[in-house]
Design a binder for these strands. Structure first.
Lengths: 333, 333
DNA sequence: TTGAAAGCGTTACCAC
DNA sequence: GTGGTAACGCTTTCAA
């Protein structure tokens, strides 16, 4: 077993045909007789031939690679999202160049890598691009879709949950179930996601006749939920419910409440956001807002593929409502 | 702002030099005068030039891509691993082609993709390769390292935690802390990982004078831990401790125990494996075995890079002991 | 230090 | 149907 890489020319020689014909078998598939096709496939099998995707990409300008830039992968919501993107993209014959970004704003060098590798499109989850970065991608004919974020003055497509609506619904639900003293643990307020959830929630609560909401700003982590809840419960303010910006924060809040001797939901109601698998665990049984991940992922991929094939840049934003999932962390009084 | 992709030839023209010289600036960096380098970088900046990694890879046979095949990404252990791999690999200038495998055995088509894209190396986490798959990768000069698994008759390198030792230590610890009635919730017994943990644990427990261990086989998920624990606790067998094959299983077991009215650790001790972040959460406060992820990831990357640069295939396996992390889920009687 | 030219493994466009 | 040949964008000789 030698170690030389085998090319279409090797296959052609062994099969006694031209290299072009081999290429046709693996490419268009047309214009090749049944007999030669057979010979070629046999020869390829013998040699262990695999077409070189790089060479192909060089000439076709189609690498069949999609860059996924993901932040916050420690939040269980995102592995689930990644898994679904992988499934959906590979169904369409695409591969994933994975980039784990650490910042809210995707860095220049990360953009550079995506351009260098000539990915056909990029999905950005839970992060943003400067508009100059968007321009660079577009200039390099790379389609872009934001996932779970959008930009006010949109220069690229986006798929997200209607956070404003969701925030409202959660506010209404807590009002309707008889709560009087509200707190909200938000994520950092530099993201559309956080801002909209907050705005919707506040509006609904105010409309329900409650003027004061105790607000803490966290960073969507368990620890920040834990700390924020402690602060709220130790503040002396009366509080009978907390809306948490995401599930993992809510789990932290529940643990903090328990530690301080509060019973959830009897003394304190807690609502999360995302509906991660853990929300369902009996220790928490978290009432939360379900983001329709499947639909969102499918939509994002569809948008991306459309952009890739159509070449013109329509900017489309798609929002999904999602739905309240009632479990056991809210007391309906 | 036009949309034509800019190449080194474009840069050369604008800078008034030859394409070769542009290439030298971005490649070796040698043999180019300070003056021309400056002109070139300026021109490149103006045009927004990025070298084409595919074309480069085609000629150099170095794509600077590493394939990561990951299974079970819903288990929080693996996102953490992925994040660290990303960090370590990008520090070395490598990029990740991400593949989410659904099976214990990596499929032929997944191998094909890795070969097609000419990744320089592959890291397989929590899955195995048939030896014919290994041979195909090697024939295509792709280095392979298994992470968290090894093969009995090794044809590729591997990095893992010494599961046999860890199992023993956990057994000894539970014996030493006065437990008498043992149960074990294993992962599927077709993996080295599971087999070794089980073997070590059983040996230590037997050596401690206990002959019976109630064994259940799960699949390393929360749900399977939950169900298995219920089965154990409802079996009528007396049980005062359960060792769970991984943390997520242990969390399920804890929740099941609580639901059945058992107090952890007073009525029942529980030990996990991995030390995922959630093990630290107050609701669980799980005593567990810490896999030294950082060291393991660094070792895996180092092994891979060595294999890539040395071209000869030494098969090296590296095991790490890890350590017991004592929290609150075990009663020391 | 520089540039011309060959070649990496494909696809695409020709003639035949 | 088929094979020859020119790209694709780069690195790497080799002469100058």
């Amino acid at each position: 077993m030698t170690k030389k890489k085998v090319t279409s020319t090797d296959v052609a020689k062994l099969a006694g045909v031209s290299q072009s014909t081999v290429s046709r078998v693996y490419g268009s598939g047309t214009n090749v007789s049944e007999k030669k096709r057979k010979q070629i496939l046999e020869a390829a099998e013998m040699l262990g031939y695999q077409p070189n995707a790089l060479a192909r990409g060089l000439i076709t300008n189609k690498t069949r690679m999609i860059g996924i830039v993901m932040r916050n992968i420690q939040n269980p919501f995102y592995p689930e999202v990644l898994e679904k993107f992988h499934k959906c993209l590979s169904k369409h014959g695409y591969h994933i160049l994975f980039i784990n970004s650490e910042h809210n704003l995707v860095g220049e060098d990360e953009i550079n890598h995506l351009i260098e590798y000539h990915v056909e499109g990029v999905i950005i989850t839970d992060a943003l691009l400067t508009s100059s970065a968007v321009q660079r991608l577009i200039k390099n004919e790379i389609a872009v879709v934001l996932f779970n974020r959008y930009i006010e003055n949109p220069d690229c497509s986006a798929v997200f949950c209607d956070n404003y609506f969701a925030g409202q619904e959660i506010g209404r639900y807590l009002i309707a179930s008889g709560h009087k003293h509200f707190a909200f643990i938000s994520g950092p307020l530099n993201t559309s996601t956080s801002i909209d959830r907050k705005k919707g929630f506040e509006e609904a609560v105010h409309k329900g006749g409650i003027s004061d909401i105790h607000i803490e700003i966290g960073n969507y982590s368990y620890e920040s939920g834990f700390e924020a809840a402690k602060k709220i419960l130790n503040s002396g303010n009366l509080v009978d419910c907390i809306f948490c910006g995401n599930d993992i924060t809510a789990l932290g809040a529940i643990d903090a409440a328990k530690q301080l001797g509060f019973q959830v939901p009897n003394d304190l109601s807690i609502v999360g956001f995302d509906d991660i698998t853990m929300a369902r665990w009996p220790s928490y049984s978290l009432t939360t807002w379900k983001q329709p991940i499947d639909d969102m992922v499918n939509a994002a991929v569809q948008l991306l593929l459309d952009e890739i094939s159509e070449k013109e840049n329509k900017v489309i934003t798609k929002s999904f409502p999602g739905e309240l999932v009632i479990r056991g962390s809210v007391k309906e009084k």
